[in-house]
Each structure stands twice: as C-alpha cells, then as structure tokens.
Design a protein around this nucleic acid. Structure first.
Length: 696
RNA sequence: GGACGAUUAGCUCAGUUGGUUAGAGCGUCUCGUUUACACCGAGAAGGCCGCAGGUUCGAAUCCUGCAUCGUCCACCA
C-alpha cells in the first residue's frame, strides 16, 4: 500500500474535507486579486455578486447563481487573470424594516412606539447579528469571493455614492417632485413602484350603477370598487362609442352626494367593458389620474393613507356631502357595504355580476395596495432609458440567452418616470432639505458595480482596475428592477457600461413545476443538500440541470449522481496515485488505447473551454462526467490494469492531473483535496486553485 | 389582450447548422464480490420525439395550424 493511499480513505467524505479546504483557501489569500501571484500583463476579470438581501437565507436560485459565478471566476483565476468576485449584501429597505417590525410586534410594540431613531438603531443591531448569514452560506457552497472587499449598500462609503448619484440627477434636472397617484401600501405606509407589486386573481363583483343625468334619464357605469365613487370627477366613454355620442359634455349628478360631474370622451376607454361608460376617480386610480390630468378634472381624495374613508371635506364640496360624513373613518370594505345599501335604497343598482379581477398586493407584506395621491420624488426616465436601450442595441451588452433582450427592451420602450421616494424609515435619506423620505432600495442597488469599487472617486484604485466588470449573472425577475437600472446608471456616472455580458440563469421550480416558496413549504434548502451530499455534489447536481433553458424542474437525483461522481473521482484518484509515475510519457511507445485516451482528453478540454465561454455550464459538466467516468475509468483504467508499464502509469497520472484541473471550477473541494496528494512534479504551486488552466 | 418558452424512455433532461439502429443521469430487470470504487462493473428492457398537415431523397430538428402546460408584460375600471 502506498502511504499516500492510506490517507485517501474510502468512500469520499465531504464533511471531513470541505471546511478544512475552505480554510486553506481563505488563509492563502488567493480570493483577493492583490494577493495572487504577480503577473506583469495579467488582465482583470471581475464579477459582482448580486447582493442578496440582508434578510435572506440562501435559496436554490442563489446556490445556482453563485455556482455559475464561481465556475467563471475559478476558471479565469486558473487562466492567470487578476480575478475579483466582489460580495456584499443589500439593505433591502422595506423587507428589512418589516422583519424588524415583526420582531417588535412580539413585544407588543410598533415602530411608532419606539420612534424613528431607536427603530433604525434596532435595524442596525439586527443587521449586525443576522445580515451576514447568507454570506456564510455561500462559503459553505465554496464561493471564492474576496471577502476582504465585502460591501453593504448602506455602509458609509456607499452612502456617499448614493448621495452623489442623486445630486447629480438633481443638478441635471432629472429629479422632480410631484403629486401623483402611486401604489400605496397601507401597512408599510409607503409608495411602491409597479415592479414591487404582486398580483392575485380573486373572485369579485362588478356593480352596474345608474348615474342620473342632470336633465333626465341616467347613464350606467360598471365598477369593481363602488366605495371610491364618492371621489368621482367624471364619467368617461370612448369617443367612438355611438351609444353615448350625444351624452358627451352632459352633466351627471353623482349618486348620494349630488356632485355635478361631466361626461367626457377618452380613447383609452374600452367600449366592450361593462357598459362602455366608466367612472373616473383621479385620486385613487393610476389610470384615472392620467385621464384626470388630460381633462383637467378636480381631484377628490376620499380614502386616507391608512385605507380608511376620508370624507370630512365632502360636505363643503358637494350639495349632499354631509349625508356621508357619518361614514368617515370606515374601512373601505365597510364603506362599500354602506354605499351599496344606500344605492339599492335609491334604486340605482342596475345589476351585479360575478367578476374575476386582479388585485395588486405589496410584494413585501402582501397587503392590498390602495392607490393614493401623494407627493413623491421622480426620476425622469426618457433619456436614461435611451441610454440603456442603446447599450444593448449596439451590442455593448449581450444577454445569454439572447431572448431576454426583448424583455429588457420592451420594458424600456414603455417605461414611466421612476418614483424613487419611499416613506419608510430604513434606507438612504433623500439628500435634499425638507424631506423625510428615503430612496427606493433599487436606487442604491443600481450603483452596485461601481459604488463598490470606489466611485464617486474616479481615481479609486479598484475602479480603475476592475471597472467595467465582465459578466453579470442574475435571475430573470430583476432584469428590469435591477439590471436595466445598473446599465443606465453605469453609463451615466462612469461613461461605460457596467458589464458586457449578462447571464440570465434558469429559474428553479419544484419537480412538478411549482414555484419554490418557503411559505408554501415547496422550497428545498440548499444547505440541507450540502449537509447530506456535500457542496461539490450539490454544485454538480445544480449545474447538471443548467442547460440554458427556461425553467428547471429540480430533481435531487442529480445531486445524488453528483455524490456518486465524487466517489468515482476519489477512487480513481486512489488507484492512479498508487501507481504514480515517476517518468514522463514516452510518445513513441503509445498503444492504441493510449492514443485514444489522450485524444479524448484533448477533445474534452476543447469542449469544456468552449462550453464555459458560451455559458453552457450543463453541457460542460456532462461532457466532463462522460469523459471521466466512461472514457477514463471504465475503459482506460480497466485497460491499464492489464498493462503494468511505466508509460501507462504516466498516462494515468497525466489524465488525472488534467481532469482535476478541468473539474476544479465545478467541484472545487474534492479536486483541491486530491491535488494535495498529487506528486509535486505535476504542480507549479501548491494549490489547485491557481494551477495553470490549459485551453488545449 | 399581448409577448416569450416548453411538450423526446417511469422521473429530470440532452439531441450543435435536417443525414444510418434517438442519448444521459436516476429508477427497473439479469448477471458479476477479478485488490480504485457495490456511492461499482457487464448487459437488458423501456420512446408512432404533444396532435394534424406541408417542404425534402431524407424531419425530433425547417414551415403552417391546433392542443396542453408554464412565465412575463398590460391603466378593461
């Protein structure tokens, strides 16, 4: 028995290996580009980790995304690039605030009870305690990030960048304040952008209500929200609608309170919906607000920021307003009942239909959105959107797979001004006098690729060295929320696109195609997979399924296959190292089988390089698996058992060494561990992590 | 209402510009404990490649239509 072999116990045990190896890497400092072996002409290669929320824990999507980035970084590091994979976390405004609010609630407190200052203090405490959990999970996965450069979107330096960015826009005249109807969460007490909404289909009703004309007769409008009718400013019809042609310009008396409102024509009205006549409530509906602006309608706010009826002013504003003052302060749901009852009493309900409608909900707390008119800060988007579109149209930035370009461009084609203010407490304060608002979390995330490298200091060392970055890998649901905004921000502030290639990785679903969700109990915790099969096996299984398609119906079977593969690699290594060759391959004495395995090795090298370059990770790992298991183990090693000569041993060593290098980006722990047993003559340094990668 | 994607073995999926008997992993079955590995080896079964047309000497692959499932977008109130 070879003494080396005594240490390579069977089977492979990831638990005894991974923690130890990770520590060796960290101690070596090689995750830090400044500590890599100096190479005079080394190019830089930089990947920015999409900063996970401090509230988060690692889910399957993170695990896959991190593995993809780690593969890229590890390969480039071995190729001699000066590689930086910069990690960090996002302060995640609303999400984090909500988590800490929930914690307070356990003690029977709200954030208002303890006040703003104290509350923010609490959040910082929470962040210090739990905020880095997700980063430590990434370490378990093997992520080779430069932890010495870890950033947080609210650390001091980052705050400077955010302020500089906002003031830049402001100075340029792109920031303005306006009263607009925004998506308002009555629980979080803040505005939300369209991208921060979730939708739910519910069974509702469609009420057909008679609005009496001032002269005689009536017009019937259909609505799903009768409680907003007290705020109506008009009834709108399509100008092409023959049914109502003669009524345009006439006055109707708003039921119950008798406010006089006009019938107007607007081409956005669908003739097919309901009766073709629609009530217009500018204060509580985004579309109605726009119609209201166009037609210069009055705005009557009848629901307050807490989602309760606000009817105090109505008695001064309309003839019978005093009749509804008794409903002031009611929840909208209760007000609806009162209003319907009153309308029925007055015989103004034509009919009630069942109706499937879609309601908007807050993406963080799930409460129903109550559109509200309020004063907000906006960033003008038209010019910035053009910049973002150009970057992709001019091929400065490419999407993989390409089809996501359309999603991106379509959104930018129709983008509205960005409401950047939020009324929560946790976030970057808007750097202007007289505002207590904070910025949308995504305003700061948009600066990630350069704010983390030292911007706004244009001479910052890291910024000069690593910006623009190369590859961004992320999930498809933040293409608009985040990616688009990074692109125009990067171009606006640095004059350069922040990255050149974007990988949109597949979404991981359950085996039967359902969304993985913690609350539904359909999620799988990657940490559990790592604990039971090992990080390498988990990475293998994930990447094995990453074929570039749209969704992955996740199957743990592939992780199990990864575990078996680890064992295969381990045992093949035991066999080869036992016969470890002392001499080089004699090329003149190659048998048919020798030639074949060397040919296959060259072939698989080319395939792996090509596949990784094209971001076809699943194809790469499948090719490696096929080569190592079937070509090398099943055929060549079996053949070698019969051929006890030095040349065969030399070839065994050569193929093992090359395979370990090729496998390393995908399965870093086991390959590094085996590497420590490989005789020195095959090595440049000690660690596989910086061993020379060969393309041919 | 638009857009995009998917549909291939029991399950999860490959199949590059159309070219012999359509592949992998897992599962199933048979045989095998020869000192790398039973987390293994040898072998086998199992597919009208969603449906219907079309182009072609030839189609899982290209075209048209349909069906089913999924995702995203949209101010049908």
């Amino acid at each position: 028995m070879n003494p080396v072999n005594d240490k390579l116990l069977k089977p492979y045990d990831p638990k005894a290996t991974e923690g130890r190896i990770y520590k060796i890497w960290e101690d070596s400092g090689l995750f830090n580009p400044d500590k890599l072996p100096k190479k005079p002409k080394a190019k830089s290669y930089c990947v920015m980790l999409p900063p996970p929320n401090v509230t988060g824990s690692l889910h399957m999507g993170h695990a896959m995304n991190a593995t993809i980035q780690d593969i890229l970084i590890r390969k480039k590091r071995m190729e001699g690039y000066k590689t930086l994979w910069l990690p960090g976390t996002d302060h995640a405004g609303i999400a984090t605030q909500n988590v800490v609010e929930k914690q307070l609630k356990k003690d029977g407190l709200t954030r208002h009870d303890i006040g703003k200052e104290k509350f923010i203090e609490k959040i910082w405490e929470w962040k210090e305690k739990y905020g880095d959990i997700i980063l430590s999970q990434l370490k378990k996965l093997g992520a080779s990030c430069d932890w010495s450069r870890t950033r947080f979107t609210m650390d001091k330096e980052y705050a400077k960048a955010v302020e500089a960015a906002f003031l830049h826009y402001h100075k340029k005249g792109l920031i303005y304040q306006g009263d607009r109807v925004v998506n308002w969460c009555v629980r979080c007490q803040t505005s939300l952008s369209d991208l921060e909404l979730e939708y739910e289909n519910i069974k509702g009703k469609l009420w057909y209500i008679k609005y009496p004309l001032k002269t005689a007769g009536y017009i019937i409008v259909a609505t799903t929200r009768p409680e907003t009718m007290l705020g109506d400013s008009a009834v709108a019809v399509n100008p092409k609608d023959k049914r109502y042609k003669d009524l345009i310009g006439k006055i109707v008396l708003l039921p119950i309170i008798n406010r006089e409102i006009p019938i107007i024509a607007d081409k956005t009205i669908e003739m097919e919906f309901g009766t073709g006549a629609v009530k217009v409530t500018p204060a509580h509906d985004i579309a109605d607000f726009e119609i209201g602006e166009k037609h210069k309608l009055s705005v009557y706010k009848v629901i307050n920021q807490f989602g309760k009826m606000d009817l105090k002013d109505l008695d001064t504003k309309c003839p019978l307003g005093h009749l509804v003052s008794k409903w002031d302060g009611l929840k909208t749901k209760d007000a609806r009942e009162k209003i319907i009852a009153e309308l029925e009493k007055q015989n103004l309900i034509e009919k009630i239909d069942d109706y499937d409608l879609r309601i908007s909900k807050c993406y963080r707390c799930g409460n129903i959105i109550e559109p509200q008119i309020s004063k907000q800060w906006f960033l003008k988007m038209s010019g910035l959107a053009e910049i973002a579109k150009k970057a992709v149209k001019n091929k400065k930035i490419k999407f993989y797979p390409k089809r996501w370009e359309k999603v991106y461009l379509d959104w930018l084609d129709n983008v509205k001004d960005w409401c950047v203010s939020r009324q929560i407490w946790w976030g970057h304060k808007i750097p202007l006098e007289g505002t207590n608002d904070v910025l949308d979390t995504w305003f700061s995330s948009a600066l990630w690729p350069f704010a983390t490298l030292g911007w706004p200091d244009k001479n910052a060392k890291d910024l000069k060295e690593f910006y623009p970055t190369q590859t961004l890998s992320t999930a498809r649901d933040i293409i608009n929320l985040w990616v688009a905004r990074m692109i125009f921000s990067g171009s606006e502030f640095t004059g350069k696109e922040p990255f050149s290639e974007i990988i949109i990785h597949p979404t991981i679903l359950t085996k039967d195609g359902k969304r993985m969700s913690k609350s539904l109990g359909t999620g799988i915790d990657p940490m559990i997979l790592i604990a039971s099969h090992g990080a390498d096996a988990t990475r293998f299984g994930l990447i094995f399924q990453t074929m570039g398609g749209q969704d992955i119906h996740f199957s743990e079977d592939h992780i199990v296959a990864g575990k078996k593969f680890c064992n295969k690699i381990w045992n093949a290594a035991r066999f080869v190292l036992e016969r470890s060759a002392k001499e080089d391959i004699n090329k003149k004495k190659l048998s048919k089988q020798d030639k074949k395995i060397l040919r296959e090795l060259d072939k698989v090298k080319k395939t792996i390089n090509k596949n990784i370059d094209e971001y076809k990770f699943g194809h790469a790992i499948r090719a490696l698996h096929e080569f190592f298991w079937h070509e090398f183990c099943d055929k060549y090693i079996e053949y070698a058992k019969e051929q006890k000569n030095k040349n065969t041993d030399a070839i065994l060593s050569r193929v093992l060494v090359e395979s370990l290098k090729l496998l390393h980006p995908f399965m870093p722990f086991i390959t590094e561990e085996i590497w420590s047993f490989v005789p020195g003559k095959h090595k440049i340094g000690k660690l596989l992590i910086i061993e020379k990668w060969t393309r041919k």
